[in-house]
């Protein structure tokens, strides 16, 4: 079993790469291309939301007035703090402090699950009020005939984002497992850096999602 962090095996550069630096650059560019495809996916959803915002502003303001921005603010705090801990995890990995890396990863996982808990609270509130998308709609006290579309978009966007938070948590758990298998040094900290970049993407999407749905109403 893995002895003290110093006893962990070093990382060997994959055979088809010439140097560690070439490997790191390739993995980072690959990650950035994957981030690009994620941003295009969320971006297309934002285009749909912006279009409906311009076509039916009343429905959007009425819809977002029914959203609880306090929970949204707490969620923003959770994501930003977990972004901080992931950044610190990368620095710890670069300095070879294996223990600090694990501590930061665990902190990030806790904060991310906090985000999901707050999310479930919000969703259950929506289920009670009946503001569910389309055919399941049985809410009261709405005047604008298009507000069911706002909540349709709300569920699609926040649902897709929550799925990405789940994927991010999965990657953190995988990074935690990797930290028990290989020693992180200034020469090799790729897994932590890539998980941090993916998590920063989840932050980035939420930073735009939160005002668009909650605050602009």
């Amino acid at each position: 079993m893995a002895t003290a962090s110093t006893g962990l095996p070093e990382h060997h550069v994959a055979h088809h790469f010439d140097s560690a630096e070439q490997e790191f650059d390739s993995v980072k560019t690959g990650m950035w291309l994957f981030i690009a495809s994620e941003i295009m996916m969320f971006g297309a959803l934002f285009v749909g939301a912006l279009l409906f915002h311009t076509l039916h502003p009343a429905a959007f303001s009425e819809g977002s007035s029914h959203l609880n921005w306090h929970l949204g603010a707490i969620n923003t705090f959770f994501l930003l703090t977990s972004g901080l801990t992931m950044g610190l995890a990368v620095i710890a990995a670069q300095h070879g402090e294996q223990g600090k890396v694990r501590m930061n990863l665990v902190l990030s996982i806790i904060l991310a699950s906090g985000f999901l808990v707050v999310k479930t609270i919000e969703y259950s509130a929506k289920f009670e009020h009946g503001t569910l998308p389309g055919r399941l709609w049985h809410a009261h006290g709405f005047t604008d005939p298009f507000s069911h579309i706002f909540f349709g978009l709300y569920f699609v966007m926040t649902g897709l984002h929550a799925t990405h938070v789940l994927i991010g948590m999965g990657m953190m758990i995988w990074a935690l497992y990797r930290s028990t298998q290989v020693k992180f040094t200034r020469g090799y900290f790729t897994p932590i850096e890539m998980v941090a970049i993916y998590w920063a993407l989840v932050d980035l999407v939420w930073v735009f999602l939160f005002p668009l749905l909650y605050l602009i109403g």
Binding site: S19, A20, E21, T81, G83, G87, G187, T190
Partner: peptide
């Protein structure tokens, strides 16, 4: 052959508080 680059800890913490302030 040293991959990547180091982001100083002060930048990370500084940007965190900037983000909180902007929120």
């Amino acid at each position: 052959d040293i991959p990547g680059h180091e982001i100083p800890k002060s930048t990370i913490i500084g940007s965190y508080f900037a983000l909180l302030f902007l929120t």
